[in-house]
Amino acid sequence: MIGRALRATLIALFLGAAAASAADSPSSAQPPGVLLSRQLAARARVSVGDVVTLAVDANGARGMMVRVAGIYEPTPDPMRFTAQRLEAHMHLPDLAALVADSADPAARELASAINVKLVDAHDAGPFASELAARAPGVIVRPTSRTRDDDPFAVLDRFHVAISAVTVVGATAFLLALMVIRAEERRDTIAILRLIGISRRSLLTAVAIEGLLIAVMGAIFGVIVAVATESLVNGVFQARYDTALVFVRVTRSIAVRSIAIALPLGLAAGIGASWPLLRGQILSLFRR
């Protein structure tokens, strides 16, 4: 018995006979089984096998005894990651017995949504139109989002824009550092040119150096990202009590980062040294 009342979301699934073993059938002698979300089980301090009262009202009226058949981790939902997942899953007939008005025979028809899996997912549009025509008033929506109505597509664009700004800022700093480095080697470059090393060779050397710095920087960045990935996820998962993964450094992201860093490093190296390489040798000696 739960000592104090908790408000939870009840989700009833009509699983059919084949899947009925997940929670006990309502026809068995013992109380019907329910699955509780991990968060609800922890808050209510119940474990598998406990018999508890599940009620529609906070005061325990209109309730029924149920047995906790299992505890599950709710499927992470990025649209609801701030919400407390206090949920219970039970068979649809059990939910009907719990909430429906016994005086109203139609009250047991209480499914609020029906999930349909099509043979061919591409038929979602025509199926929705046909169903809407046959059953006016029924709202039919595909479960997959289009690019236009997906808030995460917008967030993706936002993150890309922030990344682009960061890259521009970082490039300016890299260029400044490379300018300092080129200035430091002014005399060395002058002597190398004086002893006959061509501009092309020096430019190639500078380009290779810029490339190496960019590669090392990018690899270091990826290592830092991978190393902090679990830290960031851990902090946010603990903060919101969810299994949602907030940061994932994928191979494509790592490759993209390196692919962006390489030309920038190359350009910064050549750009910073170019004024020294194109000028007259004597000007390098300030003559």
Binding site: I162, V165, G169, A170, A172, F173
Partner: peptide
């Protein structure tokens, strides 16, 4: 270059 870099990061 440093001022430009700081300005961009500062803008962010």
């Amino acid at each position: 270059l440093a001022v430009i870099g700081v300005a961009i990061i500062g803008a962010l």
